[in-house]
Computed example of a mutant assay.
Amino acid sequence: MRPETPPHWLHPSMIAEARAAQAEMAARLVMEDALPARIACLGGADVSATRFDPARRVFAAIVTLDATGAEAARATEARIADFPYIPGYLGFREAPALAACWARLAPKPDLLLVDGQGAAHPRGLGVACHLGLVLDVPTIGVAKSLLVGEASPGPEPGDTAPIVWKGREIGVALRTRRRASPLYISVGHRVSLATALRIVRAACDGRRLPPAIRAAHEAANAARRATIDPDRAG
């Protein structure tokens, strides 16, 4: 986490403060390419949680894949979320745990694919934006559903369509596998939309989700099983 990160960007005390923090962060996003010339290591970030869990437990994971696609590192974090489950504010539940993962991860990736929204968000600040700004690393939002907007890509792998909301393009829907629902790609931080689409498309290997996100999903679920049902964790 950057030392200058204001506390309320991660731990707001109320909804009004969270909304104000989102506006502050959205104004500081870099939505153009400001990333390494060569992406040697790609990362995936995901959080496993149940919205109705009264304990507010979250299980976060970040995984680094090397240039061959092999796993080079993973870090997980299990904690109680400070912020409740409120659609549009998931970054405040997930980013603190993901930031803890990042602090322990070695080697770190050059860019993170985040399972969740980027700028395709009502206030332009999904968890991919939130995390990218807090860590000051390039991030891309790779969501499995739309939060706002509409998009209808064709049926073939590689087909795309703009995500349009209130008359403007806020992301791109990408069909990665025939007969599978599309992915919804949007800018996180320090990556342009064109580059985000190119990276996600290149990362896919014939399955719906890129390997980095699949690996993070498996790691987060493993951390959850180890806490909730340790007898079945192995």
Rank of each mutant, 00 (worst) to 15 (best):
A203K: 00
V200G: 11
T50R: 06
D110K: 03
A72M: 01
P155R: 05
R232V: 04
L193R: 13
H189Y: 13
M14S: 15
T68F: 04
T5I: 05
R178A: 13
V58N: 02
A97N: 01
A216P: 02
R198I: 11
L42D: 02
A173S: 01
I80H: 13
E24R: 11
A81S: 11
V187T: 04
R38N: 14
L147M: 13
I140P: 15
P6N: 03
A128H: 11
L146R: 06
F59P: 03
D229V: 05
A20Y: 09
D53V: 05
G69Y: 06
R225A: 15
D229F: 04
L35D: 01
P155Q: 09
P109W: 02
K108H: 07
T227K: 05
R168P: 02
D231F: 07
L90C: 08
G188A: 12
P3W: 06
A99F: 02
S192A: 07
A26W: 06
R28T: 15
R93V: 04
R225H: 06
A61R: 03
M31T: 04
L209G: 04
T76S: 13
H8Y: 10
G43T: 03
H189Q: 11
R179K: 12
A194G: 10
D110R: 06
T76R: 14
P153M: 12
T50E: 08
P211V: 05
A212V: 00
R51K: 06
R179G: 09
T176Q: 05
R214P: 03
A49S: 11
L183Q: 01
F59H: 12
R123N: 13
T160K: 14
L133A: 15
P122T: 12
R232H: 12
D229I: 01
R123P: 01
S48M: 04
A161M: 06
V172Y: 03
D46A: 11
A16C: 03
P153S: 10
K166Y: 05
S181I: 00
D82I: 06
P153I: 01
E150K: 06
R175H: 10
L98Q: 01
R123F: 05
A120Q: 09
S48R: 04
P138E: 05
L10E: 15
M31G: 11
F83E: 04
T64Q: 04
A203P: 05
P122S: 12
H130K: 08
P122Q: 14
L193I: 08
A128S: 14
D53I: 14
T227A: 14
D82K: 10
L183N: 08
I62G: 00
A180Q: 15
R178Y: 02
D66E: 04
P155T: 01
L29S: 08
A216W: 03
V58P: 02
P182E: 00
